[in-house]
């Protein structure tokens, strides 16, 4: 798998910051997100090292000198007790599930490769994540925590919710971004308002 390339190089949802697409409250939310990265308060050091390694593999950002921060917002949500609305009956409460799951990823790393998760190569980390996503893990530390549900119903959801809330992530997919109050006029396929991203670069569609 080659590195990620955005179809929309040069497009930045923040370029519209001072336009009618942004209002004060949206600016307040995004400014807070960009400037106030929470410090870890929920996870301990060992958990934190697994968590950051995990986030790096779920959303690898090798092209960025300053990657979009993800782990700090997971920690903050758990510290603040921000709910998700659902706890699956087969799962522990969110905070306990995260702690156990991170420990179980570490235990799986020891079992398969004789090391700590955070110290493994990217390929080996990916192998463990893929196994957990498929429910195909064996470390006893998973007892009482269904790995597939943990990964798909909690970990991946939380990580994409944080990543795609970031302007850099929204820019790379060509999303229109904030629309407060200006929305859109051109609603047809292949037609764009001047305040949207221009047409993307699509290698599979080169003439």
């Amino acid at each position: 798998m080659s590195d990620f390339r955005t179809p929309y190089p040069g497009y930045d949802v923040l370029a519209k910051w001072a336009s009618p697409s942004w209002n004060d409250q949206t600016r307040q939310v995004v400014r807070e997100r960009l400037l106030n990265i929470p410090r870890p308060r929920f996870f301990n050091e060992a958990e934190w090292s697994v968590l950051t390694a995990l986030c790096d593999r779920i959303i690898p950002q090798p092209e960025r000198a300053e990657p979009v921060p993800i782990a700090p917002f997971i920690d903050a949500a758990l510290f603040e007790g921000r709910g998700t609305g659902t706890r699956f009956a087969e799962m522990p409460p969110d905070g306990a599930a995260w702690r156990q799951g991170l420990a179980a990823l570490d235990a799986e790393a020891a079992l398969r490769f004789g090391g700590r998760f955070a110290g493994l190569t990217a390929e080996r980390q990916d192998a463990i994540i893929a196994a957990a996503v498929a429910g195909d893990v064996t470390a006893p530390a998973w007892e009482g925590l269904p790995p597939r549900r943990f990964m798909r119903g909690l970990v991946l959801l939380e990580i994409v919710a944080i990543y795609y809330a970031h302007p850099a992530a929204q820019s790379e997919i060509g999303f229109g971004g904030s629309t407060s109050p200006r929305g859109y006029v051109r609603l047809d396929a292949g037609r764009f308002d001047p305040w949207e991203a221009g047409p993307g670069i699509w290698p599979d569609r080169e003439p």
Partner: peptide, 28 residues
């Protein structure tokens, strides 16, 4: 985007560069 990404990962389990690539198809 977040709603779509949630649907994508919870149903396919995709992660990594492949996840970013599939999300980059959002507009198509």
């Amino acid at each position: 985007p977040i709603d779509y990404a949630s649907c994508l990962v919870s149903n396919t389990g995709v992660f990594g560069t492949e996840l970013r690539r599939r999300m980059a198809l959002y507009n198509r």
